[in-house]
Simulated assay, not measured.
Amino acid sequence: MQEITVEELKRMKDAGEDFQLIDVREDFEYEMSNLEGKNIPLGGVLIETDKISKDKPVVVMCRSGKRSAMAIMQLEAQGYTNLYNLQGGILAWADQIDPSISVY
């Protein structure tokens, strides 16, 4: 599984690179704090594959990196090859990039 660090994600965002960010946390988690990605909770990932790009890099994130890894395994079984797991999830983002965001 391909992975990306929060530092790499910040660089991609700052540079305005063309990629998609998918947040697989539950709605209430996303509402508490998010990085402006598309919210598709893990349970709906396979139902909503039409909303996940196949032609550009897709960074998948969650709270710590475990749910996003599960989502990537499910999507790779459907033929996706452009997915990157955000190491440490939003907890790592809060720790290393933006301590002002709410985490739980």
Rank of each mutant, 00 (worst) to 15 (best):
Y30C: 06
E76M: 12
T81K: 15
I40S: 01
P57A: 06
G88L: 05
Q20S: 10
D27R: 14
L9A: 01
R63S: 11
G16A: 08
D27G: 10
T49W: 05
I101T: 06
E8T: 06
E31I: 10
L9S: 00
L46W: 02
L46D: 05
F19Q: 02
Q78K: 15
Y84V: 02
L46V: 10
D55Y: 09
V45A: 04
K54Q: 14
I72Q: 00
S64D: 08
G37T: 03
I90T: 06
E48S: 14
C62R: 00
I4K: 03
F28D: 15
K66P: 04
F19K: 01
E8I: 01
N82C: 10
R25G: 04
Y84N: 03
G88E: 05
K10H: 07
N34S: 13
K56S: 09
R67S: 04
I47H: 12
E17S: 14
A77T: 09
E17N: 12
L42E: 04
L91E: 07
E3W: 05
V58Q: 00
R25D: 04
T49K: 13
T81P: 06
E48N: 15
M32I: 14
G79S: 09
G89E: 00
K56C: 11
T81R: 14
S33W: 03
I72Y: 01
D18C: 08
N39T: 09
M32V: 12
A92C: 07
M61C: 12
N34K: 08
V6C: 04
L75K: 01
S64C: 10
T49D: 04
G43K: 12
Q87L: 14
E26F: 06
I72C: 05
S53N: 14
M1A: 14
V45I: 15
V59I: 13
G44A: 14
I72A: 02
F19H: 02
Q20K: 05
K51G: 07
Y84L: 13
E48C: 11
T49S: 10
D50E: 15
V58I: 08
T81W: 08
T49Q: 15
D55E: 15
Y104W: 13
L75S: 01
R25F: 09
E17P: 05
Q78N: 10
S102P: 07
M61Q: 11
E48M: 15
